[in-house]
Nucleic acid binder design. Structure first.
Lengths: 203, 203
DNA sequence: ACAGTGACGGGACTTGGTCCCATCACCATA
DNA sequence: TATGGTGATGGGACCAAGTCCCGTCACTGT
């Protein structure tokens, strides 16, 4: 950091005070480094150096080192609106299916497939990151449960439907990010939900 | 730590090199401090001082600060044997019910009720601890899924049954640790599982 | 022209966590 | 009785995560 021209624009135009998209640059740098040498062998300072920033800025954008991979926290809102906007007469799992379609349309678009796969691989390789992911999942289940209860679904039924929905999501996501399938997420989610419902009957 | 007599036996008998039960003493000290001033306002050194030990010893027994509340890792083994020893013809959820009974007999005995309640309250009050708990839960679900698959239950069915079993466990545990109920855990687990199964049919 | 704003730089500081080595009661064996 | 090994602990150096506070300076509106 002793180089004064560190992150100076490489263009010749009038100097912009800062390069734009700091959080995204940090995310890209972090993902690359985690892939190269692993999460625990990467320091926050190394991430910020690659992004042309500093430790202060990193922690201004992310609560902690893990959170850089979980910043896209729009999922919760999408799930809630997806359930809220489901047809009035829809059964709990149908409302969940509707939410998964919204997710597929708004978040799991095909242009983000490769990135999602890389991110998932990094997370799967590290217990700390899996831990954070598990907590996020709990939050999403709570969101779905709450949204279902607002539709008048009884407490326990809502909880079960949310849990089964989360399971279908996981299964669909596993398939979606796999290189083989070119289906879109909504289609895979519908299939997974149907299979989960069938498996439920065998319990 | 400059006091040479720090953790010297308070009895007059021949000096024992160390006070016994170091991990348990650390757990008790940690739980007390977390209750008094909260998890994040408690340092590891304060825990070790109350237990009459040092930081080195703490991290020799526990991987990190959170793990002091999650040391009793016998659950996984109990669950696995509980499912393995279920009657041969039992349906997946019946095998899970058998496992929950084993848990109730071996781990959630009534003399540990108050302690469990205190521990749960501390965990609920802190996101870091909830995060660790979420990861532990994933591990238990994986254990149950694996045990069910060894019984010949198909992949997805096992996963669903394990998930529903975990949900029933949570519900039963919430009720068990509540001050009102004097039922034993196995009974509450059976009820919860029945209710979950019923809710499942309404999805 | 000028003060306010807001994202960033930077450094001091606390704490979690790792590593390595010293200590010393206990124990087995001679 | 002597002697050497064992194993849980003490202790301190060290690194990285995360917090706090303050300075900088292009941009912006008046």
């Amino acid at each position: 950091m002793s180089d004064g021209t560190k992150s100076r624009a490489r263009t010749m135009g009038p100097m912009a005070r800062w390069q734009p998209h700091a959080p995204e640059r940090l995310l890209v740098a972090a993902l690359e480094l985690f892939e190269e040498r692993g999460y625990e062998n990467t320091t926050v300072i190394e991430i910020t150096e690659r992004a042309g920033l500093t430790k202060s800025t990193f922690f201004r954008h992310f609560r902690d080192k893990r959170e850089v991979l979980f910043g896209g926290g729009a999922m919760s809102g999408l799930l809630a609106t997806g359930i809220d906007t489901a047809p009035a007469g829809a059964a709990p799992l149908e409302a969940v299916a509707h939410a998964l379609e919204v997710i597929g349309r708004e978040a799991f678009t095909s242009d983000r497939r490769e990135f999602s796969a890389r991110r998932s691989a990094v997370i799967a390789a590290n217990p700390e990151l899996r831990e954070r992911e598990a907590l996020k999942k709990l939050g999403l289940i709570a969101t779905m449960t709450g949204a279902l209860e607002r539709r008048g679904v009884p407490d326990l039924t809502a909880r079960v439907a949310a849990e089964l929905g989360a399971l279908a999501w996981e299964i669909a996501f596993e398939r979606w990010r796999g290189t083989a399938s070119r289906d879109d997420f909504a289609e895979l989610a519908r299939q997974a939900l149907t299979q989960v419902r069938a498996a439920c009957a065998l319990c």
